[in-house]
């Protein structure tokens, strides 16, 4: 679905991403992890066309991204992007915000059906009750979920038929409490299970291991490792890249990340 060949991205004269290769298949969830400033969000922006490539190519379904971006109305029917933070200085009702996700499909789908799709999407993110509330009266977490509902509504066709669907999520859990973090990761996983290609920027290593099929680990703009989640996220590699001693603890079939502290016996699992 998505191929990324030898891409380099510069901000000013400084290369912030160097010579990255990877690919993303349909029905697959890839998590990108790395320390702060390693280029995770930059990579997402390069893949979605927000940042220009200094070198290399990005291909979507065998066609170059740059070519496809010339017709954004076509691409928007099967590709959605949830940015780290969406701002909306105007006070729309929640349902209208979600309905914006349907705008690529307005010509093909009738209004009542679109409304149903949006309400279903709101239900999926646990926000149907907020339908008629004003956007600016929502908390940060609620806003983030409403935007997620918006991208889910946008990809509705791709997720419910054999059509393609490509979803980019930039740290979607950042503003959320634990319950809603898990809920969103579940939703992302569900999307992949229903055939979508999901590209997820994530901070939490334990969550990455639990939800991702494959993991791309970045450090200082370079790919450190790319492959199966469990093998990329080895304790040794985490220790080297994130500069903190850890070990995986297995419990009831789940892998928990424990931070090793040589000076005391307390253990700590990250969330």
């Amino acid at each position: 679905m998505l191929r990324c060949d030898n891409i380099t991205v510069k901000r000013g004269t400084r290369a912030v991403l160097r010579q990255l290769h990877f690919d993303l298949q349909a029905a697959e969830l890839i998590a990108v992890i790395g320390p702060n400033g390693s280029g995770k969000s930059t990579l997402l922006k390069a893949l979605t066309g927000e940042l220009a490539l200094a070198r290399g190519t990005v291909e979507l379904n065998g066609q170059s991204l740059a070519t496809q971006m010339q017709r954004p109305q076509d691409i928007a029917r099967w590709r959605a992007v949830l940015p780290q933070q969406s701002e909306l200085a105007f006070n729309f009702p929640v349902i209208d915000v979600v309905m914006m996700g349907r705008s690529p499909h307005l010509a093909q789908v009738e209004q009542a059906r679109n409304l149903e799709i949006c309400e279903a999407a709101l239900e999926q993110v646990d926000c149907l009750a907020l339908k008629d509330r004003r956007y600016q009266h929502l908390s940060g977490g609620e806003r983030q979920r409403v935007h997620l509902a918006r991208v889910l509504a946008q990809l509705h066709e791709g997720l419910n038929s054999d059509g393609p669907a490509l979803l980019f999520l930039d740290e979607p859990t950042a503003n959320l409490d634990l319950k809603h973090q898990i809920q969103i990761l579940h939703l992302a996983r569900q999307c992949a299970d229903r055939g979508a290609a999901v590209f997820l920027v994530l901070h939490d290593l334990q969550q990455a291991r639990a939800y991702a099929d494959r993991v791309l680990m970045l450090k200082a703009g370079r790919s450190v490792a790319f492959g199966k989640a469990a093998s990329v996220l080895s304790a040794k590699r985490i220790e080297r890249v994130f500069d903190i001693p850890v070990e995986w603890v297995h419990h009831d079939g789940d892998a928990l990340l424990k931070i090793k502290n040589p000076n005391s016996n307390t253990t700590n699992t990250t969330t």
Partner: peptide, 10 residues
């Protein structure tokens, strides 16, 4: 919604 969000919405 923002420049890029609008692009992503087609």
């Amino acid at each position: 919604l923002g420049e890029y969000e609008a692009v992503h919405l087609g």
